[in-house]
C-alpha cells in the first residue's frame, strides 16, 4: 500500500563524526529484503515511529544486497531520533523513490564526481556503482571537499580511492588545524577540479553539496566549458509522500520526488525557485 512503510531493523550504526553516522538497515520481511533494488541517487522515506518520516538518500551501492545504508546528519526531529536509536531498533522504510542518476547515459563516457560535505551521501552510492563496473566508464575523477580533515566522511574509503590508479581522486579541505596530519589538498574544492583535469567532451558530472558549494562548483564547471546538460545535481526539498502527491517538494512546476531529485543543471535553471 502506498505510504505504508516496511519495518526494518537497525543492524549497525557506524560513527563517522559528531554530527554524522552511517546506519545499516535490514528489512524484516525476507521477500522485501531480497527484492529491494534501487539506482544510485534514489532515496527512501525513513520512519521513526512516533516521531515521523523524512526523505534520505541511499548511501550504499545498488550491488550490495540484503541491506540499505543511510548516511545521516543529526539535524532535525527525525534524524535526531534516528541518532538516538540503539542497534536492533525497528524503523520503517519505504521506497526507493526518485529518478536516480542516469547511469545508462553516463556509462561509456568519462565521469567526474564532485561532492561537498554531506553531499557525499548519494554520491557514495554512485561511486560504489562505478567500482562494481569500472570497465564500463572511461576516465573517472572524484573530488571531495570538506571543512577540515576531521569532517571528511568515509575517510578510510576515500583514502583507498586516492590510492587507486584507475580513478583520479583528490580530497580537499578548507583548512587544517595544527597538529592534524593531512596529505590532500588545502583550499577550495574548485581548485581540485582543475587538478583532476578531466576532459570536457564526453564527460558527465555529478555534483552534490550545500548551496554555496553548488554556486562555486557550477560556476567553475561552466567556465571550463562543460555543457549544462551534462552536469547532474541532486536537489533537496521537503517531502511528505515521495509519490508526487503531497505537493511539498514542487520546485517550479516539477515534483522533485518523481522527476528528481537528480536534475541536469539545464533543467534546474529552467525551474523557477531553484535555490
Amino acid at each position: 500500500m502506498s505510504l505504508v512503510p516496511q519495518t526494518a531493523t537497525l543492524v549497525e550504526k557506524r560513527y563517522l563524526d559528531p554530527q554524522h553516522s552511517l546506519f545499516r538497515f535490514v528489512f524484516d520481511d525476507e521477500g522485501v529484503r531480497e527484492s529491494f533494488s534501487f539506482s544510485p541517487g534514489q532515496f527512501v522515506m525513513l520512519s521513526i515511529f512516533g516521531v515521523g518520516e523524512a526523505p534520505i538518500s541511499i548511501t550504499s551501492g545498488p550491488d550490495e544486497k540484503g541491506f540499505v545504508e543511510l548516511c545521516v546528519r543529526q539535524a532535525g526531529r527525525v534524524t535526531g531520533a534516528l541518532h538516538a536509536l540503539e542497534e536492533n531498533a525497528t524503523v520503517g522504510l519505504r521506497g526507493p523513490y526518485g529518478n536516480g542518476y542516469p547511469v545508462d547515459v553516463m556509462e561509456g563516457g568519462n565521469l567526474l564526481i564532485v561532492a561537498g560535505g554531506l553531499g557525499i551521501a548519494p554520491l557514495r552510492s554512485l561511486i560504489r556503482y562505478v567500482l562494481y563496473r569500472r570497465d564500463r566508464f572511461r576516465e573517472v575523477g572524484i573530488g571531495y571537499g570538506a571543512r577540515n580533515p576531521e569532517s571528511v566522511l568515509f575517510s578510510g574509503e576515500m583514502q583507498n580511492l586516492v590510492a587507486r590508479t584507475d580513478i583520479k581522486c583528490i580530497l580537499s579541505v578548507d583548512s587544517v588545524p595544527e597538529a592534524c596530519r593531512w596529505d590532500g589538498h588545502v583550499g577550495r574544492v574548485t581548485e581540485i577540479i582543475d587538478r583532476i583535469n578531466m576532459p570536457i567532451e564526453g564527460t558527465s558530472v555529478a555534483v552534490c553539496g550545500p548551496p554555496v558549494f553548488y554556486k562555486f562548483v557550477l560556476e567553475k564547471l561552466l567556465s571550463l566549458g562543460y555543457s549544462k546538460g551534462s552536469i547532474y545535481m541532486s536537489l533537496e526539498r521537503r517531502m511528505e509522500c515521495g509519490l508526487g502527491k503531497c505537493g511539498h517538494c514542487v520546485v517550479g512546476h516539477k515534483y522533485t520526488c518523481i522527476e528528481g531529485p537528480i536534475f541536469t543543471y539545464w533543467d534546474a535553471i529552467n525551474l523557477p525557485e531553484i535555490f
Binding site: L3, F49, G50, V51, G52, E53, E240, C241, K245, C246, G247, H248
Partner: peptide
C-alpha cells in the same frame, strides 16, 4: 487542492 501533510501521534 490535494496537498497533504504526514505526521505521527502516539
Amino acid at each position: 487542492c490535494q496537498c497533504f501533510d504526514v505526521f505521527d501521534s502516539t
